[in-house]
Design a protein around this nucleic acid. Structure first.
Lengths: 247, 247
DNA sequence: ACCTGAACACCGTTCAAGT
DNA sequence: ACCTGAACACCGTTCAAGT
């Protein structure tokens, strides 16, 4: 007699799940969609749908899609903790910091695309910029080149995060195809980067002698994700050390 | 008596401009639109409009927007000429090659965005990859790390081209605003990167001491485009030289 | 073979109207 | 203040129909 009569009553049994909208909820929903389907698949309409509302409602909390994605990017960086004194000298700490940023961003698919078209200025991005430049200074990098050095490291983080995301995506595709034999084979060959290898393989050896000669080393398989990332960071840091002072 | 009577006749006076459609024409039109309005503004419908046809007609020559943009990217690289023996030793030549690639891509607004989401495999990209790896080998870079080194240089080219494009875009905005005093001031402050500087300036100095201390060096003005690009390339090449061999 | 009008299934964003 | 239905001005891509 109390339950089914009044549709005016805000009954938590018939209307249970709908959490109140908020800026945080909108941003979290956007990042969740990135995880599921990637940056390009995040539309205002889908974010709204995930929050059980209409697209127009989002504009109460967020100026536009661009701002929303920038906030999702910063949310992805929230989990990154800057290393402390226990983690070693400045170089070990810098490597840890950079590695954590790559893992955090790469763990949210291609959210790092946000950093390609705009300079991140969210609170977490600023926090990590501060930490990075502090470590660089500790490494003897000159004040005048410190911002440049931080920029180079940021570019390294962005491109490495996108690479990691692509690798994880391939792995997920292989795992998802673990049923039909044909699909599995196709997914595995994609994961091995053999499309690219096939392109190199079809080039005439006389006009592309170097590509031809180095082809074994050029496949994604030959790149070995982690080893490549380590090598690349070494290149950058040693390069930075050689250019500590302003030209 | 021959000119105005027959509407059936294909009269070049009344129907002059419409060139026959072709894959090349579609690609060139797309790159032209990038130059005018940037990557995001290039839609199939606008490309069709520029060619005086309907969007459906483009699909005769091009599989989808992605392929079209990839071809436009490769077209932008067509003008890059690999340096020869007259241009100096391997390092001078590598610096020239990389500089030319940045200039070519950056001269077509943000077309370099194409290289972010897919590995360029057009004929010109392959031609320049071959040239790059040949120079790296001449510099003593080990075969096993050559592809990695080429990858690092490609990332440098892409990010530098996007930076250059942004700088040119700002300059164009300043030039275009050369009338109304207010508009000019706003455009110039944008060009000086003072938005970013304002963000840094508002940070509390006690929790962001390093950003605070280095703020003068962090503005775009302080970055001085060309000097920064030179420094960055030096960092990468010297880093590569220090890691010539496989770890 | 090449071209295209019309349609399909989407977009981001705005705005008047509701509570 | 917060929310929203409906609309506006776009998208990429397909496909049946024309030449």
């Amino acid at each position: 007699m109390t339950d089914s009569t009044g549709p005016v009553r805000d009954n938590p049994r018939t209307r249970p799940a709908k959490a109140p909208l908020s800026r945080q909820a909108v941003i979290a929903a956007a990042l969740g969609l990135v995880d599921e389907a990637g940056y390009a698949a995040v539309t205002m309409r889908r974010v709204a749908q995930a929050l059980d509302t209409g697209p127009a409602s989002l504009y109460v909390y967020v100026a536009d899609r661009d701002e929303l994605m920038a906030e999702a990017y910063d949310l992805a960086l929230a989990e990154v903790e800057p290393p402390g004194p226990v983690d070693g000298d400045w170089r070990a700490r810098l490597e840890l910091l950079v590695g954590r940023a790559i893992a955090a961003l790469g763990g949210h698919d291609d959210i790092a695309l946000v950093a390609i078209t705009r300079v991140p200025t969210g609170p977490n991005a600023l926090r990590l910029l501060e930490a990075t430049m502090t470590l660089l200074r500790a490494g003897g990098v000159d004040d005048s080149v410190c911002p440049w050095a931080a920029d180079v490291l940021d570019q390294y983080v962005t491109s490495s995060a996108l690479e990691l995301a692509a690798r994880l995506r391939d792995q997920r595709a292989v795992a998802a195809a673990g049923g039909a034999a044909e699909a599995t084979e196709e997914a595995m060959s994609r994961a091995a980067g053999s499309e690219l290898d096939a392109i190199y393989g079809e080039l005439p050896a006389d006009v592309y002698p170097t590509i031809h000669a180095l082809r074994p080393a050029m496949t994604t398989a030959g790149r070995n994700g982690h080893l490549y990332a380590t090598w690349k960071l070494g290149v950058i840091i040693d390069g930075l050390l050689a250019h500590r002072r302003h030209p």
